[in-house]
């Protein structure tokens, strides 16, 4: 078996890299794939919290590279899904604790008996980014429809395009708010895609359910009713090569929009009668 190594990156912090990693990883595992999530945000680890695994971590990625344990010992299995495991970041060290070569080596080893290795990248374009990208051949660039997030995503796309090892990179647009797009207060999906000139792999609507799912340590893809969960499950299916249509987020209309629709309908009916 030779697994695919996908790095999840963004440039700007706080746009949802870790949430995306946790959810895509869980969704891929639920679909029957063997998945390892690697948290490379050394010093600021959070992926363990989102998966609810914070109490089970014994060894971290730094312990692996410094020879205190074997790679297999450091992989923490998910509570619900035995297909999913986590290689956690160390909390007490910094980004220089692991080198590009060491991360590449870990990815190569994990490729042998896993379908997907998802690398959660730290914010920024410094060494932490270089390390996270080192072992990957695919990338998902997470951004939101905001000025600074888009500008930073553009920088990241430039850096990824310059790397020969990265065979493909796709855009994941997170925290989309259809009601703000409808009132022209937020850039639309089309606007962002046009600006960044990058293919889309997913559109995730803003969802308050994300907050409670993080608090519970249970990724939102496990909630069958959630729209964001549905969107993340669709991303996982696209990664697996399926063609899945993007969710139609526009039906989420505000009150005035609904009244307007009602009046338009009745006017049409009156017209038809006359």
């Amino acid at each position: 078996m030779s697994g695919r190594v996908i790095v999840i990156t963004s440039g700007k912090g706080g746009v949802g890299k870790t949430t995306t990693s946790a959810n895509i990883g869980t969704a891929l595992a639920k679909a029957g794939n063997k998945v390892v999530l690697i948290d490379t945000d050394i010093g600021l680890r959070n992926l363990d919290l989102l998966l609810g695994l914070e109490n089970r971590i014994v060894y971290t990625i730094v312990d692996v590279v410094e020879g205190r344990c074997k790679l297999k010992q450091a992989l923490v299995k998910d509570k619900k899904n035995p297909n999913l495991s986590l290689l956690a970041a160390a909390q007490t060290r910094d980004k220089s604790a692991v080198s590009e070569e060491q991360l590449k080596d870990i990815c190569e080893k994990l490729k042998k008996d896993n379908d997907f290795i998802l690398v959660d990248c730290p914010a920024g374009i410094e060494q932490g980014f270089q390390n996270a990208v080192a072992g990957a051949s695919e990338a998902i660039v997470v951004t939101t429809p905001e000025m600074s997030a888009i500008r930073d995503a553009d920088r990241i796309i430039g850096l990824l395009a310059a790397r020969e090892e990265i065979e493909s990179y796709k855009l994941l647009l997170n925290r989309v708010r259809p009601n703000l797009i409808a009132t022209n207060d937020m850039m639309s999906v089309e606007d962002v895609v046009e600006l960044l000139a990058c293919d889309l792999i997913g559109i995730i609507p803003e969802d308050t359910g994300i907050i409670s799912s993080t608090n519970k340590g249970d990724p939102i893809v496990n909630d069958e009713k959630s729209l964001a969960g549905q969107a993340y499950r669709n991303v996982a299916r696209r990664i697996m090569g399926e063609e899945v249509e993007f969710l139609n987020l526009e039906e989420d209309k505000n009150f005035i929009g609904k009244i307007k629709d009602f009046f338009e309908k009745t006017i049409k009916e009156i017209k038809a009668k006359i």
Partner: peptide, 20 residues
């Protein structure tokens, strides 16, 4: 003035071109 989206888009367009 009201169309914030277009303002954002044109500002970004210019900034991205300069960055690139």
């Amino acid at each position: 003035e009201n169309n914030v989206k277009d303002v954002a888009r044109s500002r970004l367009k210019l900034v991205l071109m300069q960055d690139r």
